[in-house]
Design a protein around this nucleic acid. Structure first.
Length: 479
RNA sequence: GGAGGCGUGGCCGAGUGGUCGAAGGCAGCAGCUUGCUAAGCUGUCGUACCCGCAAGGGUACCAUAGGUUCGAAUCCUAUCGCCUCCGCCA
């Protein structure tokens, strides 16, 4: 798995999460009734229960372990129903009794007093039932949140990247009559990449860019933004780089992948945790959380340029050289919220939007269809774009474009009301969410350096970038 | 940092302990009108869950969570968010 993939990982019920959090410090006051709030994990549960066998099969395609919680969920769902029946029966009884009391004229009389005593007991009993119900629902919710999305039918089987499928290849490796350098040596020699000083400042997996390097990073980002806004119809959006944990539940990064995130210290006074975003996907996808959109305003197409922060836990020793895998990198991200019936076409189009950037830059790349076992947690279907790196003599991921179906929408409460003519007020539906890196700027910089390097160690700047580089045509050694 | 205010259904906005899932308006939907015409009239119109073949019945939800009470949109507490004023500051 590559660093950039699975940035497609999801946020959810805004308030529920806050509530879950409170659960830990105060075990005895587990939030009652949280499950039936406006957002609906319940649909999810119903779907899982009603399609237990097919869900088991599709989750199994990601790896056998993923399907394991299903039996427990099924059993808990049964317990939940029983708890609800018991608790609602009592609630009805109590409500009737209370309504009757309201009709008693003499609030000081013996009749009223007797009724009050009886109801007091009833009310206590009801609270017990409600607690029991809430307890079961929290358990179910925990399990549901830890289950990944079902792979789409046309996603190939396979446990790891070995089974990803090459969909297409664009361009050709640039002809070089010399041994190409990798970006690390190239950039260091040109004086535009500096890993010594970044190490001193911040440790491994950071970079300092100087002069033309810094300019190129900025130029790439701006070029990408301009293309997506003016040619692909995206709306540029600037978002916070710190988000609440609730946003991370929505996209699916939490609860399972917290070890990939940088959590901000010094927020102890707050009731929630703040994290550095691992991708713009998190703030942007959650932008319309808990809103009810109209069908007319779909699709929503957003592009955001942000830094991304990743802990890269478990990647020790991998890609330690150069700036392939950094704790901090820039990315231009495209996100779409669409009607369910449009998401497949949107996924193809969005992937094309990312490819267009590579093609305009003249960078040799290929498109991979990820197999079930290699996909991110929240994704139904993912294309990775891999760019050719002459210095490594291999393709490396530079973009990951995913269709999440309604997975994130359910967790983040992203809904719209269909405007079906003549059919009255249609029920709200979940949108489908998609996103893709378009592109990871740091890796694009690497690809430009390596693919455009010349025998003399200089680097030509792609034509389309020159207007963004004050007309500079070639990067030569920094003086 | 100090002081105060607010948070109701897609939107606006009533509602300060009982019959309130919640007036009214707008938007939407259905129908009727077509000399009040970029209109009028009538009706309808929240979400989720549970039971039920269905018809239908039930429960919960007035930012969130606790609490008080026989009973909470309404009272108390905490939290979240927004707004105003003062101070400070990029």
């Amino acid at each position: 798995m590559c660093a950039l993939s699975h940035d497609g990982c999801g946020r959810g019920y805004t308030e529920r999460r806050e509530c879950r959090r409170l659960r830990e410090p105060t075990l005895d006051t587990a939030c009652v009734g949280g499950f039936t709030s406006a957002t609906n994990a319940m649909l999810d549960l119903r779907y899982v229960i009603e399609n237990l066998d097919s869900v088991r099969v599709s989750l199994g395609r990601r790896g056998a372990a993923w399907a394991a919680p299903l039996d427990e969920i099924s059993a808990l769902a049964q317990r939940r129903r029983e708890a609800i029946m018991a608790s609602e029966k009592l609630a009805k009884e109590l409500n009737d009794a209370t309504a009757a009391m309201a009709k008693i004229a003499d609030k000081k009389g013996a009749e009223f007093t007797a009724a009050r005593e009886k109801n007091r007991a009833l009310g206590d009993e009801r609270k017990q039932f409600e607690r029991a119900q809430a307890e079961v629902e929290l358990d179910i919710s925990d399990l549901l949140l830890s289950i990944p999305n079902e792979p789409a039918a046309d996603v190939p089987d396979g446990a790891d990247e070995e089974h990803n499928v090459v969909v297409k290849t664009w361009g050709a490796a640039p002809k070089m009559d010399f041994t190409p350098k990798d970006h690390h040596d190239l950039g260091t020699a040109l004086g535009i990449l500096d890993f010594e000083r970044s190490g001193r400042l911040s440790g491994p997996r950071f970079a300092v860019l100087w002069g033309a390097g810094a300019m190129l990073e900025r130029a790439l980002a701006q070029f990408m933004l301009d293309v997506h806004v003016t040619e692909h119809g995206y709306t540029e959006v600037y978002t916070p780089y710190l988000v609440k944990d609730s946003a991370l539940y929505g996209t699916g990064n939490l609860p399972k992948f917290g070890d990939q995130l940088f959590k901000i210290a010094g927020t102890d006074e707050r009731a929630y945790d703040l994290y550095l975003i691992p991708t713009a996907e998190v703030p942007v996808t959650n932008l319309h959380g808990d809103e009810l959109l109209t069908e007319a305003e779909l699709p929503k197409k957003y592009v955001a340029f942000t830094p991304c922060f990743r802990a890269e836990a478990g990647a020790a020793g991998r890609d330690t050289r150069g700036m392939i895998r950094q704790h901090q990198f820039d990315k231009v991200e495209v996100v779409q919220l669409v009607r369910p019936e449009d998401s497949e076409a949107a996924h193809e189009a969005l992937t094309r939007n990312a490819e267009t950037i590579l093609e305009k830059l003249g960078l040799h790349y290929r498109r991979m269809l990820l197999c079930a076992g290699d996909m991110g947690f929240s994704s139904k279907k993912t294309y990775d774009l891999e760019v050719w790196l002459p210095g490594q003599q291999r393709f490396r991921e530079i973009s990951s474009c995913s269709n999440f179906g309604d997975f994130q929408a359910r967790r983040a409460a992203l809904r719209y009301r269909p405007s079906e003519e003549g059919k009255g007020k249609a029920k709200p539906r979940f949108v489908h969410t998609l996103n893709g890196s378009a592109l990871a700027v740091g890796r694009t910089l690497v690809a430009v350096l390596e693919q455009y390097q010349q025998e003399d160690g200089t680097v030509l700047i792609p034509e389309v970038l020159r207007p963004y580089c004050r007309g500079l045509e070639r990067i030569t050694a920094r003086t």
